[in-house]
Design a binder for these strands. Structure first.
Length: 130
DNA sequence: ACTTTGACTATAA
DNA sequence: GTTATAGCCAAAG
């Protein structure tokens, strides 16, 4: 019995790459950002609030700095400030690409402001369930 | 363990 | 409407 079972034990398990398991605040930010639909925008503050840390809006912006290093893409251009301003545009290369990406999705931008921001605002707290 | 860094925001004047 | 300021706090160094 024991003999038979041992036959099926892998003699030397292969060493596999560590899975990336992150539950950090930054990772949570990226996850929420990924849920923003095309053609809609959300805000740093809204993401922070959704994550239960309403006072950490700055950290959401700070997190977005590393967005393009993420393995899974993060639509960082859909995250803007509470006034509808593309405050993060200088962190894109080129800087105009933030606006360009939004316009590709049908979001109009004028003077670095999203036109009809209130209508296009996508609030995680409102559109995400459980 | 301590300090710095901010793609922010609420508030006040 | 505007500007200034204080609070914010997870990561990185």
């Amino acid at each position: 019995m024991k003999k038979h079972a041992e036959k099926h034990i892998t003699p030397k398990p292969p060493v596999v790459k560590k899975p990336v398991i992150e539950y950090s605040f930054f990772e949570n930010v990226y996850e929420v950002a990924r849920l923003v639909p095309r053609g809609r925008v959300t805000t740093y503050g809204a993401i922070a609030k959704y994550l239960g840390t309403a006072k950490s809006a700055r950290l959401v912006g700070y997190a977005m700095n590393g967005a393009h290093f993420q393995k899974q893409p993060v639509p960082a251009h859909r995250v803007i400030n509470r006034n509808g301003l593309l405050s993060g545009r200088h962190h894109f290369n080129p800087p105009e690409s933030m606006q360009e990406n939004l316009e590709k999705e049908g979001v109009k931008v004028k003077n670095h402001q999203v036109v009809d921001f209130e209508k296009l605002f996508w609030d995680p707290a409102k559109y995400l369930s459980i």
